[in-house]
Amino acid sequence: MSSAPGPHDSGRERDRDEEGRARNQRPRDGLGRPLPYGVEGVPRQPEGVVRAPGQSVAEAQALLDAGRPFHAHEVFEDAWKSGPEGERGLWQGLAQLAVGLTHSARGNTKGGARLLLRGAGAIGDWSSRCGEEKPYGIGVAALVSWAEALAEELERESVPVDAAARAPRLRG
Rank of each mutant, 00 (worst) to 15 (best):
M1V: 03
M1P: 09
M1G: 11
D9W: 02
E13F: 14
R16W: 02
R21K: 15
R21T: 06
R21W: 12
R28G: 07
G30R: 15
G32A: 12
G32N: 11
R44F: 12
E47I: 06
E47Q: 11
G48D: 12
G48T: 08
P53N: 09
P53R: 03
G54W: 10
G54R: 13
Q55S: 10
A58K: 08
L64Q: 06
D65I: 08
G83F: 00
P84L: 04
E85C: 00
E85F: 01
G86D: 14
E87P: 05
E87Y: 01
Q92E: 14
Q92M: 05
Q92K: 08
L94Y: 05
L94F: 08
G100W: 01
L101Y: 00
H103R: 03
S104M: 10
S104A: 15
G107E: 06
G107K: 04
G107S: 07
G107P: 02
T109D: 06
L115R: 10
A120I: 04
A122I: 08
A122G: 12
I123S: 11
G124Y: 11
W126T: 04
E133M: 13
E133L: 14
Y136K: 14
V140S: 04
V140K: 05
V140F: 03
A141Y: 01
V144T: 10
L150T: 07
E153N: 05
E155W: 00
V161E: 03
D162R: 01
A163D: 08
A163Y: 00
R166W: 05
A167R: 08
P168C: 09
R169V: 06
R171D: 03
